[in-house]
Nucleic acid binder design. Structure first.
Length: 917
RNA sequence: GGGCCUGUAGCUCAGUUGGUUAGAGCGCACGCCUGAUAAGCGUGAGGUGGUUGGUUCAACUCCAACCAGGCCCA
């Protein structure tokens, strides 16, 4: 029993129980103390630069699991590039302006909103955004993300706002900016424009009418369908489906054109039994045909085609009013139609519609229907129920109303072609990502930059008080820019026009009095300019960025808007590579939403499990598609984490207090098994680095984890125990094993550092090595490990491992029959059947019993009937070990009892015990 | 309705240019060890490859349709 004290058992202070929620905070504190971010940049000050530019999350609410996923993926790359020796500044940013914040602040204010000024509202929005920037900052840091947290970029800062205005000036100078009409959702009660998430939907009954539009010069009619009679005064065209068949029919209402598919339905509704098809036609037969305007007989309209024409309701011909509908508007742009919108802010018709001027549009519905009936052009009417948009605040029904907006022209200076060219020369990961954005950009409309809101950067445009024409000039815009740089964009609302831009004159009428634009920029314009306001401006970065990394939805968002402004102003994409990841869904692959209650906060998970567990989960999934998330799944990561942690702990324990600087063993001098595992690891880590370089973290993780499980834990370390525990402390065999463990752990901590930064750091603190850095993240990975590659020895072990597999099965059989418990109670008998195998067995004779973890391995000629398996180049059998059990190493050996002083020990143990004294 | 993506064991992933009985780890079951012990080791059972057709001597791998889910548009 007392011989146990003579063994070299593992010992370490590195705790088995991680207690991550506490440990991570301690490590974080240490990182703060050594100022890890600056320290890393200093460490790499002469290295090559790598720029991953952070897309700004919206400063609204706490971070959610998706935001965490994105930041952690970025952090994997930053930390990996860093440990590969790159200088990796990372400037996190926040998107601060925009509707959702304004909306939330407005909601909080309630009715008080009416009492406060625009500037006060903006101030409240600023405070709101500021609060969440700080909250999110803490939450990101908590996840172990390294970055310039003390100096992030904020889109509402003076410098950033000034840069937005500066770039707008550049776009104006290059003629990309124009003013045009565009229909937007409008609440006539609140007299305001509404954005997407301010709109709610309610079921509503609308009139559904069929109206005859008479052809010019012919007594035939298009039978059109609409649910908004009040938009008829703004009619400029009718649309037919380009791919559908049409028919001309005779009816008691005259000769009508309609979609063939809908003929029976229309016939039924009109209740006209005499109705019959006289001619089959195609939409293209009518293209550009002129008809008389249904309300204003002095006007005409023409036929266009549009694929949004429905084929299951109505007549298959749709009334088009580009000023009053989004589809209509798109079609209007495509076919160069007039965009007319004779509706005032309060929802009444303007003077241009003589008949209905001053009447509310919804009230006008009935009047219009009556009039059309009287004329005989309305031939069918019914009620149609559908969901209809209403105002989130006053719940009144919304209309589409064309208003003056500012646009960025994507056709100007061949911009669209240039965008496509830039998409083509950028590397998109995964590859399909390119096609996705390419198709979007190919068909996207001009960018509407103006928003009728308060919380944002004002559009620096002035309007002549005398003639109303806009003043939009680079020189004036630059003056505004300078003011904003000094005072922030509130200055636009605070100062008088003259104080802002000095004396200016209207180009049209010479007027000198101007009004300031009240619109602000679309927030996407803000974030689009981070490439300029951040990447170009910060001395520690370099434009264009090496990488942008965001979720799939950003093809329509940040990837695209950044590309547009950057290409317009600088004629190239702001990035060299773009990496896209999928979204995090719930465990059933359903969208997460607060109403479903399937949302997890990263904060809660950090408190309960630790950031490492989330990071490990994110590393284990393939981010190119959407991924599930749930607490049960996190449990897997927890198990995985502890396996990694325990393996590291075991290695640390064996290294113990040994002074590793003393050990230096040439490769040729090392134990065969050590040479094997080093070669195997050298190959593994080469693959790991390749995966890292391709941003395939789930493959990194799997490669790493499989090595830990299959190669280290269940094989190498298990086999090594005997050598480390029982051999004499300074024996060559033991030293070789120690040195191997040291080499492995030293490299493994660096490899896993990007994924498990806290654990790698904690282990590094307990790791005794010469010339240690302040942090594991200051280390660098180089390729010296490649010198351990040894194809021959790996080939030999491939074979030996297969023999081991058979040995284990034979041992399992003995265990099941109760003959043995642990494997050292057995011997293995090998019998080679060919010369090659015999030679190999002989070559590895000295370590075979170790590999199998048995007491003895005997190589002898085949004798008995036990050797059945003829497929193998050897026969194998397990028997109960002969010899006596050594009290120290527990092997059953012949040499036990030979030593006079230590009769209970084997020869090796006796020597070992003596050498320690 | 359109553009793009995803669908291999309970879970997360592999599967080279179509070619033998579709692999791994986890989990699970059973067993061993008690000198990695809130650990470690072994053995084993799990797959109609979303569905249906087609091409082919041969398809998880190519094609088509459909189903389910996701993002972005409409």
């Amino acid at each position: 029993m007392e011989y146990k004290n003579t063994l070299n058992l593992p010992k370490t202070d590195f705790p088995m129980k991680a207690n991550l929620p506490v440990m991570e905070l301690e490590i974080q504190k240490y990182w703060d103390e050594i100022n890890i971010y600056d320290a890393l940049l200093e460490e790499r000050k002469d290295s090559d630069l790598y720029v991953l530019h952070d897309g700004p999350p919206y400063a609204n609410g706490h971070i959610h699991i998706g935001t965490a996923f994105n930041k952690i993926l970025k952090d994997f790359i930053i930390k990996y590039k860093n440990i590969r020796g790159f200088r990796t500044p990372y400037i996190p940013g926040w998107d601060c302006h925009g509707m959702p914040i304004e909306h939330n602040v407005t909601k909080e204010l309630g009715p008080k909103i009416k009492e406060i000024s625009k500037l006060e509202l903006r101030k409240k929005c600023r405070e709101y955004a500021d609060k969440f920037v700080n909250i999110q900052k803490g939450e990101f840091k908590r996840l172990g993300v390294f970055g310039d947290w003390g100096n992030p970029y904020i889109t509402m800062s003076n410098v950033y706002e000034a840069d937005i205005i500066d770039n707008f000036g550049k776009l104006v100078e290059k003629n990309f900016i124009y003013r045009g009409l565009r229909p937007i959702h409008w609440c006539m009660k609140c007299q305001t424009a509404l954005a997407g998430n301010e709109i709610e939907y309610e079921d509503k009954e609308s009139p559904s009418i069929f109206v005859k539009y008479k052809w010019v010069g012919e007594n035939k009619f298009f039978l059109i369908w609409t649910t908004t009679p009040w938009t008829l005064p703004a009619n400029v065209a009718v649309a037919m489906h380009p791919d559908e068949d049409y028919v001309e029919v005779d009816s008691s209402f005259g000769s009508l054109v309609m979609m063939k598919k809908l003929f029976e339905s229309v016939k039924g509704k009109l209740n006209d039994l005499s109705m019959k098809i006289v001619k089959e036609t195609k939409a293209k037969d009518y293209l550009d045909k002129i008809y008389l305007h249904p309300i204003d007989a002095n006007r005409t309209g023409r036929v266009i085609t549009a694929d949004f024409v429905t084929t299951d309701t109505g007549t298959g011909i749709v009334h088009i009013a580009p000023g009053h509908g989004y589809d209509d508007y798109q079609a209007g742009i495509k076919f160069n139609l007039d965009i007319i919108s004779p509706v005032e802010k309060d929802g009444t018709f303007s003077q241009s519609v003589e008949k209905y001027a001053g009447i509310n549009v919804f009230k006008a519905n009935a009047a219009i229907i009556e009039d059309l009936k009287l004329e005989g052009s309305l031939i069918f009417e019914e009620k149609f129920s559908h969901s209809y948009p209403v105002c989130w605040r006053c719940k009144s029904e919304l209309i589409f109303r064309a208003t003056e907006q500012w646009f960025l022209d994507v056709e100007k200076s061949n911009l669209r072609e240039r965008l496509l060219r830039e998409i083509d020369s950028t590397k998109w990961i995964p590859a399909w990502s390119k096609e996705r954005i390419y198709n979007m950009v190919k068909t996207r409309p001009d960018w509407c930059l103006s928003r009728q809101r308060s919380w944002g950067v004002p559009l620096p445009v002035l309007y002549c008080k005398k003639c109303g024409s806009p003043h939009i000039k680079k020189s004036t815009i630059d003056k505004v820019r300078d003011e904003v740089l000094k005072h922030g964009s509130d200055i636009w609302f605070e100062k008088e026009t003259k104080e802002l831009v000095g004396e200016i004159k209207c180009d049209k009428c010479g007027g000198t009095e101007f009004e300031k634009e009240t619109n602000i920029f679309d927030v996407w314009f803000d974030s689009a300019l981070s490439h300029s306001a951040v990447v170009k401006k910060r001395p520690d970065l370099r434009w264009p960025s090496d990488l942008y990394l965001e979720a799939v939805d950003q093809h329509r968002g940040w990837f695209q808007v950044s590309l547009i402004v950057s290409t317009a102003t600088d004629d190239r994409a702001p990035y060299k590579e773009v990496l896209t990841h999928g979204l995090i869904l719930d465990k059933n692959m359903k969208k997460m939403s607060k109403s479903l209650g399937n949302v997890f906060s990263p904060e809660m998970i950090c408190k309960k499990y630790g950031a490492e567990i989330i990071r490990l989960w994110f590393a284990s999934i393939d981010y190119t598609s959407d991924a599930p998330f749930g607490e049960e799944l996190l449990k897997t990561s927890l198990d995985t984490y502890f396996k990694i942690r325990n393996t590291i702990r075991f290695m640390l324990g064996n290294l113990g207090e040994n002074d590793l600087s003393k050990i230096k063993i040439e490769k040729e001098e090392m134990h065969k098994l050590d040479r094997y595992i080093l070669s195997r690891y050298a190959r593994t880590r080469k693959r790991i680095l390749e995966y890292y370089d391709n941003y395939e973290f789930h493959k990194v993780f799997r490669e790493f984890y499989n090595f830990i499980v299959n190669d280290l834990s269940s094989f190498y370390l298990d086999v090594l125990k005997d050598r480390l525990y029982t051999y004499a402390k300074d024996s060559k065999e033991r030293q070789s094993g120690l040195y191997t463990v040291y080499l492995l752990l030293n490299d493994m901590l660096k490899q896993i550092g990007p994924i498990l930064p806290f654990t790698a750091e904690q282990a590094y603190m307990h790791f005794k090595k010469p010339e240690k850095k302040k942090s594991v993240h200051m280390e660098t990975i180089d390729n010296t490990f490649d010198s351990y590659l040894d194809a021959k020895i790996e080939e030999n072990f491939d074979f030996l491992n297969s023999v081991r597999g058979n040995a284990l099965m034979a041992l399992e059989k003995m265990r099941n029959s109760g003959e043995i418990g642990k494997s050292v109670e057995a011997d293995i008998i090998l019998s080679p059947r060919n010369e090659e195998t015999r030679k190999l067995f002989e070559e590895y004779k000295d370590i075979l019993s170790q590999i199998f973890i048995v007491s003895n391995v005997e190589i002898k000629d085949e004798t008995g009937e036990e050797f059945q398996d003829r497929k193998l180049s050897y026969a194998l059998k397990a028997e109960k070990a002969e010899g006596e059990k050594c009290a120290r190493c527990w092997l059953y050996l012949d040499t036990v009892g030979q030593d006079e002083k230590h009769p209970q020990l084997c020869e090796k143990c006796a020597e070992a015990v003596k050498s320690e004294v």
